[in-house]
Design a protein around this nucleic acid. Structure first.
Lengths: 207, 207
DNA sequence: CCATGTGAATACATTCACAGCA
DNA sequence: TGCTGTGAATGTATTCACATGG
């Protein structure tokens, strides 16, 4: 039975990449089969939750046996649409931008930076990895021309909203936001926010 | 009435830093008073949720008026224990480690890196910001001697678990983990995980 | 009036527990 | 037997809606 037309809670979607990550790790270790129990121990979710999450999308396991790792990996890649490589724009060529541009963990998991922008004259024209840093005022046209639908914002908080507006104008549909500020975007645009300090602050509460 | 002895859901704790961030932003803009309605629009949570979250800790607002920004800011800083500055160890002096060591957004929000470690002989002894990169085998003693309770892991996934084990041995009680792997730590140790690729993958699902 | 603080109602998420099948 | 997939039961979180008091 196909389940793919039911509405899937966003919280479930948020866990799928973690399942995928764990499966890839197991595959690299040469494993062929796993179980909801094993994934549970590796990830810290209950085995029932893992089974239920997967059941939104189909029946991937074999009773009495478990899940064939490579098969489930491929299924999750397809569900998450990372059975391809997405081009991304990176905005901000500071320290963080450098780290992101040099990060080799994107490619294997479905992503690739193919355009880098900054507003500082000193940085424009410099090479960052394989790419030349482009001026901000070419952003909108470039992402539109290159059909880039994903972008990373790695600029100071004060500049982030203007960058987001430009990205949206250029046709970008999802933004990974490293600036410590909430972005205001149209409802169809996805934003995933990374704020390490917020993470730290939610931990110091418990210390 | 004091509410601080009730159990507060972790999901609520996770939102407090975002409230604090928004309040600080308003304060910088020179604002003195705000409302759950205004914060709702800035942050994208419902106003009822914001009021309910805050009500776990006390009564901070004035009926008919709203919240005095500086007062609520200070209250949240105290609740989150960021009315002080926490020293942190940074493990990993690669590109990401550099970006973190140079990031000026920690200090104002309650954090400061005061010790940096790496295992690569080529990096040990080099200066990173104000600090000399120390060898991994001094980690445990150093964090213990300096009473460091927070650490950032910025090493490759394959090395992360061993680093976490050392940190825990040294007395670290909360870890900000940038390595794309789940860490196994004793239950009293807090871990906040940052995986940008997982964030991207949960967005491509919707594209 | 206006906006908070909060019980009650609703909506959502997780876990239980077991039928079903390799 | 062993482990999945899943309704039913439980547990959490969010929203509603209004009494309260500046």
């Amino acid at each position: 039975m196909s389940h793919t037309n039911h509405h899937v809670p966003t919280i479930v979607i948020g866990r799928l990449p973690l399942y995928l990550r764990a499966l890839t790790q197991l595959a690299v270790e040469g494993r062929r089969v796993t179980s909801s129990q094993e994934l549970s121990e590796k990830l810290g979710f209950s085995s029932a939750q893992i089974r239920k999450d997967l059941s939104y999308f189909g029946e991937f396991g074999k009773q009495g046996t478990g899940y064939e790792i490579e098969f489930l990996e491929n299924a999750l890649r397809e569900i998450l649409q990372v059975d391809r490589v997405w081009n991304m724009a990176l905005v901000g060529a500071g320290d963080l931008g450098h780290a992101l541009a040099n990060y080799d963990g994107f490619e294997l998991r479905g992503f690739r930076i193919t355009a880098i922008f900054d507003s500082a004259p000193a940085k424009i024209g410099a090479m960052l990895g394989n790419w030349r840093v482009l001026p901000m005022d070419t952003l909108r046209e470039t992402v539109r021309a290159q059909k880039i639908y994903l972008a990373i914002i790695a600029v100071p908080a004060a500049a982030a909203q203007a960058v987001a507006d430009e990205l949206v104008q250029g046709g970008v549909r999802a933004i990974l936001n490293y600036a410590p500020t909430t972005l205001s975007v149209p409802p169809q645009i996805k934003v995933f926010h990374i704020d390490p300090v917020a993470g730290l602050q939610s931990m110091t509460y418990y210390l």
